[in-house]
């Protein structure tokens, strides 16, 4: 919840006050924070002695957890956009 509030404040500042010449810096901060986050996550994972033995199972499970949601996302988006967005384009033509 705190995260969403912070993000909303960011959106407000970005929309109202932010000078676009700093957007490169803003992008770099994002990359730095993401790298730091992932590094910290790696640290907390690696601090578990049994980590490497778990990786074999988790690797397989994560492939399933990525592919099935991808496939399940494609079909509803395809049918919805075909019904609502493509039609609008045809009418314009």
């Amino acid at each position: 919840m705190v995260i969403l509030i912070i993000m909303a404040i960011g959106i407000f500042i970005g929309y109202k006050y932010f000078n676009e010449k700093y957007s490169g810096l803003n992008g770099k901060i994002q990359i730095l924070c993401t790298a730091l986050l992932i590094f910290s996550m790696g640290v907390s994972l690696g601090s578990r002695p049994e980590f490497f033995s778990e990786l074999a199972t988790l690797g397989f499970e994560s492939v399933i957890f990525s592919l099935i949601p991808i496939i399940c996302s494609i079909f509803p988006v395809y049918f919805l956009t075909k019904k609502f967005l493509d039609k609008k384009k045809e009418a314009k033509k």
Partner: peptide
């Protein structure tokens, strides 16, 4: 999250 918010708002 703050930086991402700024990107979106800009």
């Amino acid at each position: 999250m703050f930086a991402v918010g700024i990107s979106v708002g800009t």
